[in-house]
């Protein structure tokens, strides 16, 4: 457990030292939000708000998490001898989820500042938001470990990742649409459970499959 925390700390330190990837993503995020503000200024409906918001999360997350294994290229051999693959994937999953949460919080603040809030953003909305973001971050972390082994990894990140996150994205978007339109919590609990179980499948598979990609 100690090692996992050290690995997470190492990632945070790396981000702190060369700040440009983080600020690059923040700039990317603000640019998309401002573009969507300018395109949808006066006619945004709650359903459109919801779809647009999840699309922004999808694109931010694919770009943000792509770096999680690609930045390790020079350190792979070192890490290979220091830590076991299970610990490395655990650390990476924790780190990308933390990173994703921060980005999502920033984006919801910016997004509702510019495009307005579509109605009742209650606790369940945020529960669903975090459930969806755990799924996206975990799936993209695993895909990043695959894409980092290839030659044109930035393109492959999107090609490999998007079909895989479709189940998560569909569930999360539909739950959040129902909540925004004012559905009670009892309507969405079964859908939310399905979403969480998809997350469990993805995380469990990452733990099983990651050692194989790491060794090659």
């Amino acid at each position: 457990m100690q090692e996992v925390f050290e690995l997470v700390k190492k990632d945070i330190k790396t981000d702190w030292r060369n700040r440009y990837p983080v600020f690059g993503i923040l700039l990317y995020l603000s640019a998309i939000i401002i573009i969507s503000y300018m395109s949808f200024m006066n006619f945004i409906k709650p359903e459109v708000w919801n779809a647009l918001f999840w699309l922004i999360i999808l694109f931010t997350s694919v770009n943000a998490i792509a770096k999680s294994f690609m930045q390790e290229e020079n350190r792979t051999t070192y890490l290979y001898f220091v830590a076991s693959p299970v610990k490395i994937i655990a650390a990476k999953l924790i780190y990308s989820n933390l990173y994703q949460f921060t980005l999502i919080l920033i984006s919801i603040v910016l997004f509702s500042l510019l495009l307005g809030s579509p109605g009742n953003l209650n606790t369940w909305f945020f529960v669903n938001l975090f459930a969806g973001s755990i799924g996206l971050a975990s799936a993209f972390t695993m895909v990043s470990s695959l894409a980092s082994k290839t030659e044109n990894n930035a393109t492959l990140m999107a090609i490999l990742g998007f079909p895989i996150v479709i189940p998560i994205l569909l569930m999360a978007t539909s739950i959040s649409k129902q909540l925004i339109l004012g559905a009670p919590a009892s309507d969405i609990t079964s859908d939310l459970l399905t979403l969480l179980s998809v997350n469990v499948i993805i995380i469990a598979l990452s733990f099983i499959l990651f050692p194989f990609t790491w060794k090659s």
Partner: peptide, 27 residues
């Protein structure tokens, strides 16, 4: 490496495809 990476992707993708069979009709 190609064999290994693509085998991992194959399993990962297939396992996420299966929930879709249950999710999409429900939506």
């Amino acid at each position: 490496q190609r064999a290994k990476i693509s085998a991992v992707y194959n399993i990962f993708a297939f396992a996420t495809l299966i929930p879709l069979l249950f999710i999409l009709p429900r939506l």
